[in-house]
Write a protein that binds this DNA or RNA. Structure first.
Lengths: 182, 182
DNA sequence: AGAATTGTGTTATGTTATAACATATCGCTG
DNA sequence: CAGCGATATGTTATAACATAACACAATTCT
């Protein structure tokens, strides 16, 4: 039995299919557009909720969107330090918490790192393909998985509040380039 | 369209369905049996691989199996300290690494904690229902999810090496008891 | 018994994250 | 526009999680 796959991939605001990448993603698209779009989206989402996009939060979000790799809290801290003189951990963690609360970034539990969300308006739990070689992260979602989790939870009388689903491995580009040992 | 759910739940070595729990799981079954079975399984698995079950590793595994909640590394450290005089972090982390390498425990990334695996013989990535109230963790697996991930990865030319899938929420027992606010 | 491998002890430090309280800024309302 | 409450940021300190590096001990193989 064959299931027609229904899978959406998100990289910035466009579907992955349009890109047909051969090299690492950041090099293959107008990434400034990703950044701009993400920031505009963010402003809009926050506006709608009556939440504030402050200077620090904007800087953090920009830094997170500088490419499609996950970002560490202490790297953000260093970045802020460069810009704002002195920044301490709570500054970063507070900004991250805020951005997460509003769906603008996801935390990748298996990396202790953070990635921008291309679909902040839709409240969701992300699922991620994470390349161990180049660090590129792609968010995706499939109805099959969501439904399967619902079934499993329902069967147990389990009420889902949050989930994290992270798939680690090697992306196509890195496989083709023969990074690592293959 | 209705899909007959095919979901297996693991609690110790028996299917969840047999148990029909009303209270928290550890109180509702012969947990000593879980521990004994898990330890015997572990000895057997390691034997088959020519790996050694040492005193420390056994203690750590026993402690992890003391109930169906995830265990923190530094709690294990305290436990070892009680038994062995002085134990330092590397002792615990080395034991955990070994047990993970041999499929005897899973790490729960969203909790920074560890849980015993009821199916160490089968190499797999676990999926987990984690109760935020009582801490009980249930491993489960559904073919639908595995297949959906395979499709998503294949579509991308992504080679999967490992995945983590953790579902947080509230278990049936806690919902019925009205723990928290409901 | 001796060599090689594997496991453990120990010191030190690296990395990730939060508590607690002080100060500043924003946005409203009178 | 002053004053107030709410929100945001600054600051100090420390908690929580994890590993590097090297010394020593135990096991196992020959």
């Amino acid at each position: 039995m064959y299931y027609k796959p229904f899978v959406q991939f998100f990289i910035g605001k466009r579907s992955y299919m349009e890109l047909k990448p051969e090299k690492s993603v950041p090099a293959r698209h107008d990434h400034q557009n990703c950044i701009d779009t993400a920031l505009q989206e963010a402003e809009r989402v926050l506006e709608d909720k009556g939440a504030r996009m402050t200077g620090i939060r904007r800087l953090v979000l920009q830094y997170i969107w500088r490419n499609h790799c996950a970002v560490k809290a202490y790297d953000i801290l260093g970045f802020l330090g460069d810009r704002k003189g002195s920044a301490k951990p709570p500054t970063v963690y507070r900004a991250l918490q805020f951005l997460q609360d509003h769906g603008l970034v996801h935390r990748l539990e298996s990396l202790n790192a953070y990635i921008g969300c291309p679909y902040p308006a839709e409240n969701h739990n992300g699922q991620f393909l994470i390349c161990n070689d180049c660090g590129t992260v792609k968010e995706f979602t499939t109805p099959e998985i969501l439904r399967a989790v619902d079934i499993a939870a329902d069967t147990q009388g389990f009420e889902v509040s949050h989930q994290t689903h992270e798939v680690l491995g090697r992306c196509q580009d890195c496989r083709e380039q023969g990074n690592g040992l293959d």
